[in-house]
Structures are given as C-alpha cells and as structure tokens.
Design a protein around this nucleic acid. Sequence first.
DNA 1: TAAATAGTGTCTATCAGACAATATCGT
DNA 2: ACGATATTGTCTGATAGACACTATTTA
Lengths: 224, 224
Amino acid sequence: MALRQLFPLVSADVALFTIGETCLQVLLVERGEEPLKGSWALPGAVLKPSLDADLEATARRALRDKLGVEVPFLEQIHTFNGAERDPRGWSVAVLHTALLPRERLPASAGRKVERIRWSDVDSPGPLAFDHRAQLTLAVTQLRERVGNYALPLHLLPEKFTLTELQKVCETILRTGRNIDAGLDKGAFRRRIAGSPDLELVPDEFRTGAQRPAQLYRAAPGFRF
Amino acid sequence: MALRQLFPLVSADVALFTIGETCLQVLLVERGEEPLKGSWALPGAVLKPSLDADLEATARRALRDKLGVEVPFLEQIHTFNGAERDPRGWSVAVLHTALLPRERLPASAGRKVERIRWSDVDSPGPLAFDHRAQLTLAVTQLRERVGNYALPLHLLPEKFTLTELQKVCETILRTGRNIDAGLDKGAFRRRIAGSPDLELVPDEFRTGAQRPAQLYRAAPGFRF
DNA sequence: TAAATAGTGTCTATCAGACAATATCGT
DNA sequence: ACGATATTGTCTGATAGACACTATTTA
C-alpha cells in the first residue's frame, strides 16, 4: 500500500503473563482480520491518535478489548520496526510486558476477538508477524528481572506468603529444559527480609493442614 | 495539523556520547527548522520509509547528516510518544544511545545543521521537546551498564591499556556532584582479567616516561 | 505422634573493596 | 637513584548457596 511509504503503521503489542499450575503463561489471541487471519498472535492494537494519550494507553485498550481486563503492571520494553516485519508495509510496534495475577483473570473474554488462549511461554506454537521474537525477548527480560524479587509482586494477590512468592519466582525461572530452578529457602528469605519492597501484615496468617504462614504485602510506596 | 490525528510523526533520536577531558559528553545540535528553531536538541531525524530499512538506519542517517560520522555502537533504549511531547501533534520518538571514541571524532561537522556542541551530560542547558528527559534516561542507563565493563570498549581506540579503560569507566560514573567515583585498581583488574570480552595484545605496550603498560583489545567475538 | 509446611541457624566458598608491596620503565 | 605508573598480592567484611535444624499447626 502506497500510504505505508509515507506513514508507517504504528501499534502497541502486549506480552501479558500470568502464573499457571507449573508454567509461566502468556496470553495469545487468534487474529480475526487479515492479514494472517486465523493465526495466533500477541494481543495488540493499532494506535488511534484521537483515542490514545500514548502507546501505553493503546496497549491497555487492546487488553480491554480482547480480554476485558485492567492490568496492574504494564511497561514498554522494546520497539520492533522496519519495512519487512508486517506484510502491510513499514511498521512500528512497541512491545509491552504486562503482569496479571491469576486471581484477577476475568471469567469471560473480551469482545472483538475470536478466541484467546493461555500458552506456556516455551511452547507457544507458530505466531504471526515477528511475535515469536517479541515473546522471546519479553520472556528473557522478565527472567532477568526476577532477580530483584519485586516484579513478581504483581503476579500475586494483595496478601501472600513468602513461600508463595518463592514459588512464583521459581515458576518464572523454570524453562522447558531446566526443570529444577529451585531457589534456596534460606537465601530467598534472607534476601526478602532486607527488601524495602515488602512488609509483614501483622497478625495475619495463611492456615492449612500445617503450621500457619505469615502473610506479607507490597510496601506502601512500592513502585519499581 | 489534522494529519497528525491520523498518522503520528515517527522519528529516531540519538544520545551520542564520548569521553571528554574530565566529563562524559553528549552531542547537541542547534535546530535549523521550526518548531523550536534555534534551540538545542539531541540529533534526530524523521523516519523516511523509502530510505530507511529500520529506525536504527534513521538514527545512523541523522548522525551522518549532522556530524558526518559512522558510530561503532548504536542501540535503541526507549520510545517516547504521545500527543503532547511535540507541538506538531501525536509523535513517536525512538531514542537510541550511541558511543564514539574521541579519536574518531570527525574534523568537520556534517551538512544540514547550523551548529553542533559537545556538552557535559550533567549541564546541557535547556533542550527542545522532551529531550532533557531523554538525555537523563540515556545517561542513567549508561551508568548502570558500565558495571559490566564491556560497554566502554566502544569509547576507546582499538588498543588500550587497563588504566585507560578504568579512566573511561570512572569518567562515565562521575556526576557533577560525585567527584570521586574512583574505582579500586586491584578490584578493577581482577574483574577484567576474568572477562571474556577482553584479550591481551601480545608484545605490545604503551610507553611513556614510566613502566610500559600492556595493551589490550576487545576479544574476537565481542558483542554485548 | 506423624505429616506437612514455616521459619531459623550455621558453615563455607566466593568476591569486592581497601590497601600495601613490588616491578619496570624513562630521566 | 628517583619519579612515575604498571602490576600483583594480601587482608577482611559481606554475601549467596548448601544444608541441617527447630517450630507450629492439623489430622
């Protein structure tokens, strides 16, 4: 299309992660329109300058439309661009990473989309455009950032135990090949203890068929 | 302009760094066109889809035009965007960081530009658009990444001594306030010794009025 | 009391910073 | 020999991982 020779297509894509039973999972949507109709892709939307204050707003709009959800964490991580990545022509796609606790998954999907699917991040199957590369980057970068143990707070409910936090970290780090990824309990808790991002919830515990576990939450001014 | 309500302005900006006598310096250019003609800004160019394979190419084109130089290192770091950051309307600016050894500075400036200036990164003066914020991000991120001691290789000539490398690291880390930033020689060299990014150049030394210093260079397959 | 999970303590290898000592040049 | 810088070595405190131990609940 000649238009693309003057004005590139600008869009926002999102790698939305959540914690599955054993795996880190990512949201995929089936494309309902050409090009590549019927193939799976990361959710995304074309920028509408009259609607979106910025591309983060574009990304949030995509998630509202396709999943009907507001995410607590959304951040841009890389911009894919060029003449070749989209068959429609020159395009700019700003990739975002978003995190959603499993508890906050909506019961129903959004409008405007055929099907959605939660996929293990290490076996997403074929994806449209360069979304395989986008996903790889988002996953790699997420795993690197787990080190500070703050990011996973966005994948947990408001109150959680240290063991739950550790499980989330282990799930993120566990790849298809590397089954273990078991973090040491002692070292993990020592590190957490010194973190300003976390605070203890007084007198609240998670009970079960064993010793109750102290509940924690994100510290008041917690941001990244 | 109504056009901007349909198609955002897409451009690439560059924070080009080099090492001055005592300071980390960044290239600024005086804007030769409206808007904000006459004010200082980071070099950049509007995307030309027919010319540029991607926005990295746009950034390289900007540096060629304004400084007449090819840089050995150029990498995208963040995308600034929104309806408000440019008076012309909705815009997308992909900010890049570039590094240039002082030895490779061209004698003359490029075409297409009124004036250029190398500024200390901590006192650039007023800048156009959101370039002050862009510069702050680029500098912050550069300082964080000096930790691995690999990035500064792009700011040095092909062959260099460990002391020269250390000086570059110290210069990058030295802020206006923090005058010291002196790294420990022993620790620095120990760390370098274990790095796969560096190799010794056999039988080559930098001589002066003192003990000659062993020359090093980037290891063969050095990338980030 | 047994099972299960929470939480703590200890040992050790590693590493970074501080700082001292030695090496090797030109003059 | 002296000044200057390069290069190496040692000491020490902090820390992460491994691993074992204790604590507290329900069944």
